[in-house]
Write a protein that binds this DNA or RNA. Structure first.
Length: 267
DNA sequence: ATTGAGACCTGTCGGC
DNA sequence: TGCCGACAGGTCTCAA
């Protein structure tokens, strides 16, 4: 599930359920997430009012009235269930709010985590400070990508998956953006930058592709149609969806993860 | 400093 | 039906 669009959709729902409400009760049903929850986790949260729920890359940050922050990551399989009729397996942490809303964090694989940080711990938290730019911010442009890509000796796919280069892209949306920009995932990252560090035209295309892929995916979240909503991801052997392209989608492995691409139109 | 491999965990799916 | 391996949208750590 969770790359930037899914995390952003989760943030909006959490915001509606929690912001300006008080946390009346926290039930910890499983302490051993990626990082074990401290014994006083529930007590520190109960009684606090939620000021805001914000997102940074794939991280969710609940801002609390004490100044503390609850930093959360969904990992591979984490998600929130809103107003669950009853608790189920893998509902690890439940928040009950003064407005009557209940949200349950569910995560079968437990790669997700929650960190309750003081104001200072939060501002120094390396997980957040080392992140690259937000791809949907105005500051994200070809110039912002040029420097980190120029230094890389790896492929575009690997470079774009690195959260220090851009924050929030994961396996699926990197694959989708590269197809949209007609760029091969195997191409060396530094070839999108000239020798003196200026963006080449393809880098502008890539920036546009990243932004549009993410925006469309966020818009799509509210709908719950099933089936594979992606053009390329998990479509090995199918014809390339680009108009006029007669290529067939291939699957390769890069850094241990699946990459899908069209060898005909992606160069 | 980069980079790849392995680890963390559970669930699901395809093949035999 | 049952078993087994491969694989899954993320990050971290460690060795080269």
């Amino acid at each position: 599930m969770p790359e930037l669009p899914e995390v952003e959709y989760t943030r909006r729902r959490l915001h509606r359920a929690m912001t300006r409400a008080r946390i009346t009760r926290v039930i910890v049903r499983r302490q051993t997430l990626r990082y074990p929850l401290p014994a006083e986790f529930a007590a520190r949260l109960e009684g606090q009012t939620v000021r805001a729920v914000v997102r940074r890359a794939k991280y969710l940050v609940v801002e609390l009235s004490s100044g503390e922050r609850l930093v959360m990551h969904l990992g591979m399989s984490g998600w929130f269930r809103f107003m669950p009729a009853q608790l189920e397996a893998h509902d690890h942490v439940v928040f009950e709010m003064s407005n009557g809303k209940v949200v349950a964090f569910n995560d079968p694989r437990r790669f997700g985590f929650m960190l309750l940080l003081s104001r200072d711990e939060h501002s120094e938290c390396g997980k957040l400070t080392r992140l690259g730019p937000e791809p949907l911010d105005k500051t994200f442009d070809a110039a912002a990508l040029a420097a980190p890509l120029a230094r890389r000796k790896t492929s575009l796919k690997i470079a774009l998956s690195d959260q220090r280069v851009v924050g929030g892209l994961g396996n699926i949306y990197v694959v989708e953006a590269l197809h949209r920009a007609r760029l091969s995932p195997k191409r060396r990252a530094s070839t999108l930058v000239t020798n003196n560090g200026a963006p080449r035209p393809a880098l502008y295309d890539l920036v546009d592709a990243i932004r549009s892929v993410l925006k469309e995916a966020i818009r799509r979240q509210a709908r719950t149609d099933d089936g594979n909503p992606f053009r390329i991801y998990d479509r090995e052997g199918e014809p390339c969806p680009r108009r006029g392209c007669r290529g067939t989608i291939r699957r390769i492995t890069q850094a241990g993860r699946s990459t899908y691409y069209c060898p005909v139109c992606q160069r």
